[in-house]
Design a protein around this nucleic acid. Sequence first.
DNA 1: CTAAAATTTGACAGGATTAGTAGGGTATCG
DNA 2: CGATACCCTACTAATCCTGTCAAATTTTAG
Lengths: 170, 170
Amino acid sequence: MKLSTRSTYGMRALVELALTSGRGPVSAALIAKRQNLSVAYLEQLLHRLKRQGLVSSFRGPQGGYVLAKDPRQITMAEVVRILDGTNSAWNGADLGAVPKDRRGSGPRARAREGSAKEVHRHAQRIARAVWRCVHERLTQSLSAVTLQDLCEEVRAEAGEPLDHRYVFHI
Amino acid sequence: MKLSTRSTYGMRALVELALTSGRGPVSAALIAKRQNLSVAYLEQLLHRLKRQGLVSSFRGPQGGYVLAKDPRQITMAEVVRILDGTNSAWNGADLGAVPKDRRGSGPRARAREGSAKEVHRHAQRIARAVWRCVHERLTQSLSAVTLQDLCEEVRAEAGEPLDHRYVFHI
DNA sequence: CTAAAATTTGACAGGATTAGTAGGGTATCG
DNA sequence: CGATACCCTACTAATCCTGTCAAATTTTAG
């Protein structure tokens, strides 16, 4: 798991969909315009969200995207997993790229550092512990944030008078 | 704030320093060898950690790096802020890249979308809400993880017999 | 006291990965 | 048909990470 701008972009698009929910599909172009981000890039993100069943799409005129799940059932953790969770980093077993050569250690052997196997086990132990400790708490706290929470946060920030009505579908 | 491999690299180095604490400085080359990552890259990270006062360094033979604070006072959130917090994404006020051109929206004006100023306020409201909601819970849960917690996690994983003694300095 | 070795520091080049762009294809509705 | 909008693939730009070299600094050896 990683965490970058993609997740926030995706979440913002989902908020947009949630706020206009029940009033027909919204085109990617309109979301992009309202959220001030690139259409093409947003389409990629929406496509991935669709394949994972978070949104549905309709082609043709008056087409666009619609939320496919209850906003209370969409968590931030899920969005992060879908949009930012593809890569090998943060994958638990990962120890980081293995460098081919080492600079400082010269020809003379050092006494303290143990066999290569031991070093590897040691590194893996620490890497796993760090990863586990962080990943656990991270997913835990991100799972606690739902799309509905974000919508309410937006409403609180706006002080009620949103320009679309605040209706959830289903 | 962003979150990538850098923070885990840095945290692993700090764990290494904490575990060998009280037994003199440890060179970047040795840490890199034990943790199986690139020396040059690790040096960059250590340099930043030094400038922020988390570690101290000594040059020359028998030199290296030493933890500058109590492991209980170093939180994961601090490390993330130092190593992954540089870039403009996730900076609260950020609204994402501003696209230069828009593809689909054609010459014909749409009725629903309001003035440019309103759209911008709307976008900013949602972006801020998303950012605030996520950032708040994220830093909160990362602040709860200290370097000492990680060391104990490592010890738990290893089942006690670590190859260095488990001593904290000061 | 001088020279060599060990180590940090800094800079830079190059590959790998990710962020974002561009443009064409295809389904759907009037 | 033709316009709207999703869908797909390839491309460019930026960033991350690694590798390497040279300079500065301190300790140790001779």
